[in-house]
Amino acid sequence: MQNRLRDFFAELFFRRELSYWTRWARNAESMRLSKLRKLKKRGSQLRARIDKLNHTAEQRLRMPRIGSDAIHSRLYSDWAWRPALWKLPLVPAGKAPLHNKDSIGSEATIFHDSSRSEIAVRQVRNRQSTDLAPFGIQLDVFAFEGSFLSLVVDLPVEAVEGLKQNHLICLDTIVELERPIVITARLNVMHGPNTEQIVRELPLYDSEVMVEFDLSYTDLNEKRVERMWVDLIFEEPEFNRIELRDLTFSRRPRTQI
């Protein structure tokens, strides 16, 4: 009740102030200079605050909402997921240098064998109206003397609950590169003492990328599935900026022919 009353009086006050400024603007040509000077000062103060409010509102309303789970999942998907790195603020937002096995948040880890660890990571806010992910991850790689650099993302337990050999695992991402490189995605599914692996090269001819991993070509033991993770492997990454503006996973049963 108090909130409604407060909102009512706030709206009443706004309408009254708006009518005053409308009348003053209409009478500005004939107004006394002393009063006009005073109103001009007040108007400048109001305008500075209104401009700041409008700028912040435009930015926030255009950005994806923090924590958003909006995902372009495939038809008939029975599970879809975006890692927290791409939807929730990372604290701290960046880290440098990145050493081998350094964690980025709770679900991702960097692996590399470079003796010179000139690698930095930073979470950036997505600002394009077409973005669904609130955040992106930016890797800056400078001198790199190793043979591999990979970002490993651990998938949650829900990804393997009810997992069948006829499932397709779909990876969707939006990639921006300072210079072209090859990025390979490797799906790993642990079942008992064994791990099935499927490797796909990301088709980077477009910024929005999708690859599918078909489990029907594996020897998956459905009764012993324990966990699943994906390696994103960056070939010859030196002196490059790699930005993953989104990363999502989903799964769906394979169409029977």
Rank of each mutant, 00 (worst) to 15 (best):
L132M: 12
D113Q: 01
T218N: 06
R23G: 07
E238F: 07
T255P: 03
S150K: 15
L46F: 04
I198A: 10
P237S: 02
I183S: 05
E235H: 07
R245S: 14
S114A: 15
S117V: 10
F234G: 06
N126P: 12
Y76G: 02
L232R: 00
K87S: 05
S216Y: 11
R116T: 13
S150L: 13
P193H: 03
G136I: 08
K164V: 06
A80K: 03
M31F: 11
E145L: 15
L247W: 06
G192C: 13
L53N: 15
E176H: 08
M63V: 07
L53I: 15
E11C: 07
L171Q: 01
G136H: 02
R116C: 11
D78Y: 04
T218V: 12
A143V: 09
F135M: 03
C170I: 14
Q256P: 10
I104E: 03
E243N: 07
I233L: 10
V124F: 06
K95C: 05
R241M: 14
L5F: 12
I233V: 11
L247T: 07
Q2R: 09
Q59E: 14
I104F: 05
A133C: 02
Q2M: 13
A159P: 00
P134G: 01
G192I: 04
I257N: 06
Y76L: 08
E208W: 07
L168D: 00
I183Y: 01
A48H: 00
H55N: 08
E235R: 08
C170H: 05
A143H: 15
S19F: 08
D140S: 15
K101N: 11
L149I: 11
R37M: 10
S44V: 02
E243R: 06
L139V: 04
R241D: 03
Q2F: 06
A25H: 09
F14C: 04
D7I: 09
Q59R: 14
H55Y: 14
R186V: 14
M31W: 09
H191I: 02
P64L: 11
E226C: 11
R125Q: 05
V91W: 13
R32P: 09
S34V: 08
D131S: 13
M228P: 00
E212G: 02
V199M: 15
R49W: 07
N54K: 13
E178S: 12
D102I: 02
R32A: 10
R16A: 10
D206V: 14
N166D: 14
A108K: 03
V141H: 09
T56F: 13
G162F: 09
S68R: 05
G94T: 12
W81K: 06
R65E: 14
Q123I: 01
D231T: 05
Q165N: 02
D219S: 10
R227K: 11
R60P: 03
E238Y: 09
P83K: 08
S77N: 08
A120G: 15
K87C: 06
E238M: 09
S106M: 03
T184I: 04
L202W: 01
D131C: 03
L39A: 07
D78R: 01
R65P: 12
S207Q: 07
F14T: 13
F239W: 15
E17G: 03
E201I: 14
N240K: 02
G136V: 07
